[in-house]
Design a protein around this nucleic acid. Structure first.
Length: 466
RNA sequence: GCCCCCAUCGUCUAGAGGCCUAGGACGCCACCCUUUCAAGGUGGAGAUCAGGGGUUCGAAUCCCCUUGGGGGCACCA
């Protein structure tokens, strides 16, 4: 095991997002390729929006993808494991409290008594003046007497970190050297709320330091925040990890992928019948490539080939068509028993929805596999493909019969004739050459195209044209 | 508004100065196969490498500017 330690730190304030899943995957690939440690940490300090249901969705989703982690909680609500725990931030409050006290004692942070209303007014004024939003620094130099006065007023203070002057620079694993002047950070920022709960920028740094995270690999939306983190690492007397900022996943209009414009919940893709192999394969290739022309790659193959050098810098539009193509590729590659297992929940859903009257047996599905495996874009398409076989009565909508060459009269006539031919053949084993030759003969005698006859029979028997 | 990041076919990308009259994949269009639908095979359309300056014998590749796009600027994460 190397010293490389990386983490995915999702916030259980929503279901597992495509972007979080990809960040988790890249961290996983980086860790496994380098014989490092992959950690899951839950950032649940936003108590109002966090929930155990989301925690479950996230953990289950990561398991579904096949990303195993070495430290962290495995099951929602359950205990975690690893030498650097706990791995839920709400269980680490004393650690943050101690760190906050240290910064306060060293005057690296100070109590701020500004009310939300005052801050909001400042912000509005700055916006009106076309100024960038920035904390006024009103509470930065309060005398003990002034603080006491605010306290006497009943005001409760938040804790603000003093942002020093200077330029922060770091070598991003993906972007190279990045420099940002601390003057552009928006002034002293809050690290502990008035209600004593710590904020993200604070906890993320304390935990990354405490958990000995060596490489912080995350989305590009955090790039501008990195100087704040570096400042905090320094104030805390901790070594800074390496940073790598992944390109964002984009909506079709090239804005940051969002629930509003795209399907972002991994759970929704699972429900549609995307298989994990395809999802992992697709996500890995969104913003990264092997540098070769290989496209269909298993998680193991990805681990073997992963390198930061081939990570793209520009954002990548999420392309569902390509995901579907990969899904088809993977469904075709799955072993029969595996497909049968994975199909079952979707068949059960068909039954529950009343679209079929019974669930096919494993043997029935196995017999169908040769004709359905290469036709499934998603597992959820199974009902459309074989549903007609498992309903008590096939409903045939007359309008489904093609009328390009045949009118309904001809269709009816042809079906009657075909029925006679089939009856005359008698007992059959349904091998292809038992019914086809006599039906072809019938078509030839009547001057019909065999394809038209077969289409009529297909619709009459299955209720569908495919 | 300020700061930061980015820029090769519609999309995902290969390309790390000459191998590029820019390659692959998805999608699209033909054709083949074919009893429909798929799958598969073959071929095609599709990028003056955002634009303009440099550097160089030589630039998609290096530098600068412009333009365009994105992200960040919370007592959210």
């Amino acid at each position: 095991m190397s010293d490389i330690r990386v983490r995915i730190a999702p916030s259980p304030t929503g279901p597992l997002h495509i972007g979080t899943a990809r960040t988790a995957l890249f961290n996983y690939l980086f860790a496994r390729h380098n014989d490092g440690t992959f950690i899951v940490r839950l950032e649940d300090t936003d108590v109002v929006r966090s929930s155990i249901a989301y925690e479950k969705d996230i953990l289950d989703g990561l398991h579904w993808l096949g990303l195993t982690w070495d430290e962290g909680p495995d099951v929602a609500g359950d205990a975690d494991h690893g030498a650097f725990g706990p791995y839920r931030q709400m269980e680490r409050l004393p650690i943050y409290r101690e760190a906050a006290a240290r910064l306060l004692a060293a005057d690296l942070a100070y109590p701020c008594y500004c009310t939300p209303e005052e801050l909001e007014a400042d912000r509005r004024r700055q916006e009106a003046a076309h100024q960038p939003p920035r904390y006024s620094g009103r509470c930065a130099r309060l005398t003990p007497a002034e603080r006491a006065a605010f306290e006497a007023e009943g005001r409760v203070a938040a804790l603000r970190f003093r942002v020093p002057e200077g330029v922060i620079s770091f070598d991003d694993m993906i972007r190279g050297r990045v420099e940002i002047d601390t003057a552009n950070l928006g002034g002293d920022f809050v690290i502990v709320r008035a209600d004593r709960t710590p904020l993200y920028h604070f906890t993320v740094v304390i935990d990354d330091a405490a958990m000995r995270i060596s490489h912080v690999i995350r989305g590009e939306d955090h790039l501008s925040n990195t100087p704040k983190h570096i400042l905090l690492f320094r104030a805390l007397g901790e070594a800074e990890p390496a940073f790598g900022h992944l390109p964002l996943i984009l909506n079709p209009d090239r804005t940051k992928m969002s629930k509003r414009k795209s399907q972002t919940a991994i759970g929704d893709y699972i429900a549609e019948g995307f298989v994990r192999e395809a999802m992992v394969n697709y996500l890995a290739l969104l913003g990264w490539s092997t540098g070769t022309e290989e496209e269909v790659l298993s998680l193991e193959a990805l681990v073997e080939r992963f390198d930061v050098a081939h990570v793209q810098k520009a954002g990548a539009v999420f392309d569902r068509e390509r995901l579907e193509w990969l899904n088809g590729q993977w469904i075709r590659r799955l072993p029969p028993d595996d497909v049968i297992d994975r199909l079952r929940p979707f068949l059960e859903a068909e039954l529950a929805a009343g679209r079929i009257d019974r669930i096919p047996t494993d043997e029935e599905i196995r017999a169908l596999l040769p004709v359905i495996q290469e036709r499934l874009p998603t597992l959820g398409a199974i009902g459309d493909l074989i549903g007609f076989l498992f309903v008590d009565e096939v409903a045939v909508d007359v309008s489904v019969f093609p009328t390009k060459r045949w009118d309904l009269g001809t269709t009816h006539e042809a079906l009657s004739a075909a029925r006679d031919v089939i009856a005359s053949v008698g007992q059959v084993s349904y091998e292809a050459d038992e019914l086809e030759p006599p039906l072809r003969r019938l078509a030839e005698e009547r001057g019909w195209k065999a394809g038209d006859l077969f289409m009529a029979i297909r619709v009459a028997v299955t209720g569908r044209t495919a």
